[in-house]
Amino acid sequence: MGKHTTLERYGSKTTAIGRVRGLGSAHGGAHHWLLQRLTAIGNLLLVTFLVVSMALLPAYDYAAMAGWVSQPLVATALALLVINVFWHARLGLQVVIEDYVHTSGNKFAALAALNIVAIGSGAFALASIARLAFAGAA
């Protein structure tokens, strides 16, 4: 009789050495899964707000757009949208990378690049919203 089950072949997934070698569960899956759902609920509210607003706004020229974005409530909603959307996108693209990039070095590089792009882009978007919002008050 050979070793048929994963447990028999590789031992328990929860041993310390297994985790160190990257063979076992990182025990972060449930956290990732839950955050993906929580940010999805946020997106449902915030992106729907943006999309419905875009459909109903009377004009799309600079004055109309900048005036709309610089309103305190709109600026707040857009800032929350940026944080929520970039977080959700980061979590989603992480799963895509983990599914298709199997070489550990490439996977690490792709995930590092994803973090830099997501956080950097989100910061730029927040700074842009802040400039519009605070310029409106000046």
């Binding site: 974005v69 857009l78 978007a125 842009s128 400039r131 519009l132």
Partner: peptide, 11 residues
């Protein structure tokens, strides 16, 4: 989204 917000902030 970034281009939209960035260009609005730029003028």
């Amino acid at each position: 989204l970034l281009w939209w917000l960035g260009s609005l902030a730029a003028g």
